[in-house]
């Protein structure tokens, strides 16, 4: 087996724009899938709508594609009915945190054994560049022509606050770190969240003087700091930066185990 066995090669090239680093997450994901030898008969990928949500349809797994924002709702159903199956939700930031924000916090609260990978390109790519709850203050979007006026979500803090037992951030520039992080998340038992900073040269870049894919990735390189670097920085220096690394790695009772235990011996 190689990573190529985890993609539908006959569907390639990807539909994405040139330099869309959602594809870099896919790249890392399939390598890690190969490294962990994920069993395709025992793994389900759930995705929804958006550019990040469409890419998983190019993966050679059982893939369930559902309504926008509902990847985790369907993933929860699959996991509860088949606790023996590994369930992975691949989402965009709008998908996971705007329309899907409710499912996101409750999946975390329940600590259901699902790996949630959120590609944060800070915009709604597929629908033409509307702002997302992750759009950085000041950035231009079709719905923020004078620059984004609202603050953005810190996905990792939301996940941690809601009870996720694995929370980490990585990005499309630090690709080896990205692979290590996805590997750890996929091996975690409980609700695991990885936010990956990605770049959308088309809908974010073009409006923000970053249409060149390499420049967009350079921006990610510049806005990320490791936990060790962050510890030595002042709050002013940290403004606008994203810390990459693991924030939570703990364990507590997992939802399907709780259910199994509650109904053990009751014949249900």
């Amino acid at each position: 087996m190689s990573w190529k066995d985890y993609i539908k090669q006959n569907m390639f090239p990807l539909f994405t724009c040139s330099g869309c680093t959602h594809g870099t997450v896919t790249n890392a994901f399939v390598r890690v899938a190969d490294e962990l030898k994920l069993d395709k008969d025992k793994t389900v990928i759930v995705c929804a709508i958006g550019c990040a949500g469409r890419i998983p349809t190019f993966l050679d797994f059982p893939v369930l594609r559902v309504t926008h924002g509902r990847a985790l709702a369907f993933a929860t159903g699959i996991k509860l009915s088949r606790p023996d199956v590994k369930v992975i939700a691949l989402m965009g930031d709008g998908d996971a945190l705007a329309i899907g924000g409710n499912h996101f916090i409750h999946a975390a609260r329940r600590n259901i054994d699902i790996t949630a990978i959120v590609s944060r390109n800070e915009i709604y790519g597929m629908t033409g560049g509307q702002y997302a709850p992750t759009t950085p203050p000041g950035a231009r979007a079709t719905t923020a022509p004078y620059g984004m006026l609202e603050p953005a979500f810190d996905t990792c803090k939301v996940a941690e606050g809601a009870g996720a037992t694995y929370v980490a951030r990585s990005d499309a520039y630090h690709v080896q770190h990205l692979q290590r992080t996805l590997k750890a998340a996929l091996q975690h038992k409980g609700f695991a969240v990885v936010e990956v900073l990605t770049s959308c040269p088309t809908q974010f870049g073009r409006r923000n003087n970053l249409a060149d894919p390499a420049k967009m990735l350079e921006r990610i390189k510049e806005m990320t700091v490791t936990k060790a670097q962050a510890e030595k920085m002042t709050p002013e220096e940290l403004a606008g930066k994203f810390v990459i690394g693991e924030f939570v790695n703990t364990s507590r009772p997992e939802l399907t185990d709780i259910y199994a235990q509650a109904f053990a011996g009751m014949g249900v």
Binding site: I7, P13, L14, T21, T24, V175, Q176, Q179, P213, L217
Partner: peptide, 11 residues
């Protein structure tokens, strides 16, 4: 291998 890992199109 950085180019191989960074390529968004697995190319």
């Amino acid at each position: 291998l950085l180019c191989e890992y960074r390529c968004p199109d697995l190319a």
